[in-house]
Design a protein around this nucleic acid. Structure first.
Lengths: 214, 214
DNA sequence: CAGGGTCGTTAGCGCTCGTTAACCTGAGGG
DNA sequence: CCCTCAGGTTAACGAGCGCTAACGACCCTG
């Protein structure tokens, strides 16, 4: 998480610029809805100049999607291993850490989150399989933690629940007016509560009713 | 003009066939990723024959998105008015009814749900504004019910929560292997629990204004 | 049987898109 | 001073797209 800020010290290379703008444009208008000339214009060069950096338009999307999926999976695995290496690791705290990490990603890299579940089918077979595998492994990391916390939850229900919580956490990019929502930290805290509430309700319906906290 | 009555029960009309297949294809490969020839082939005619039924490819997408949005909004409003006309209407039961209706939609019309939040930006300005308005009104229906049930929840947090729950309920189309999840009714019940759990958790426990459960 | 409407067909036009080809320029090294 | 090479440029090509034009088969109805 602190590494994220540190990596931004140096000026972004041209490749990174291109990927950044391509992600934004793809998220806004869809992969097929953006032309290479537009991507070039967004970074100050024009059209075919992109081919000095990428073998083709497909390759940009592929690199974006593989990158996202790897970052998510690596982050998830890192948190699991941190929790395991810490003596007092608890499933509760670990699930919170996973949720926290995913929320950071959803709030800070909105175009990528959008692309991640929207443009997967535009990839060539080999890339799509690779991304699918990374996504599946990321889900399995969550499923493992959720089932450690709620042993009574059947595996297929846990998987559906994890998918549903992803949908919940990834919902912010779809908000029409981003200025109409609470600040970043308040939104993050709210999403975190919602996710925990959903997980709690997955196993125990009685927790789905509001109770007096006092 | 053909007979209206005959089309009610009998085989779907050609227009409906086209819309159905177009929805499936658009959801699978994106609006720009599907050609008119493919849509035609999917209903047994070929290419330009579609123009006997629609003025253009855009019009198919527009009719699909407007139709979805209207169906959702009408369903929501219907349930609210039913609840109001029933003497014993309670926000609890009303929210359950809204959730139920949305789940039915998400499970039974998966391509439409996918299109609904994915291809909106491919519409012409006038159609897009119309769909946006319908979607916004649908959200407001939910927000009203949620705030009636949880008066302590601020309006902007309620709105984010409703969006998040939509993301949760709409997550099933993204499941890679639909056969790996529980049956329809079990999935519906699970999603219902998750949604209720998320709403219950929306109210920050430390700030909760608790309504008398009598 | 004539005539029109409906619902198709095929051919092809015009445009846009991703990509390639050929050329240019400025910086660094021997 | 020349050569190389990275990183651009513009021109243009070929494919694929949405859509139109022109035509035809079929089914009514009078």
């Amino acid at each position: 998480m602190s590494t994220h800020a540190a990596a931004r010290v140096a000026a972004p290379t041209r490749r990174e610029q291109i990927l950044r703008e391509a992600a934004r444009l793809f998220a806004e208008r869809g992969f097929h809805g953006v032309g290479v000339d537009e991507i070039g214009a967004a970074v100050g060069i024009s059209g075919p100049g992109l081919y000095r950096h990428f073998p083709g338009k497909d390759a940009m999307l592929a690199e974006l999607l593989v990158g996202i999926s790897e970052r998510l999976l690596d982050g998830g695995r890192l948190r699991v291993s941190e929790d395991a290496s810490r003596g007092d690791g608890s499933p509760e705290a670990l699930l919170d850490a996973l949720i926290e990490g995913h929320i950071d990603f959803a709030l800070d890299d909105r175009p990528l989150i959008t692309l991640h579940d929207r443009e997967l089918d535009r990839l060539r077979d080999t890339d799509r399989k690779r991304v699918r595998r990374l996504q599946r492994e990321y889900v399995e990391v969550w499923v493992g933690v959720v089932r450690a916390l709620y042993p009574g939850l059947p595996e297929n229900e846990a998987r559906v629940t994890v998918h549903a919580v992803f949908g919940l956490l990834n919902s912010t990019p779809h908000l029409a007016r981003p200025e109409a929502r609470p600040g970043r930290e308040a939104t993050a805290a709210l999403l975190h509560r919602l996710a925990r509430g959903a997980f709690a309700a997955a196993v125990d319906p009685s927790r789905a009713v509001v109770v007096d906290p006092s």
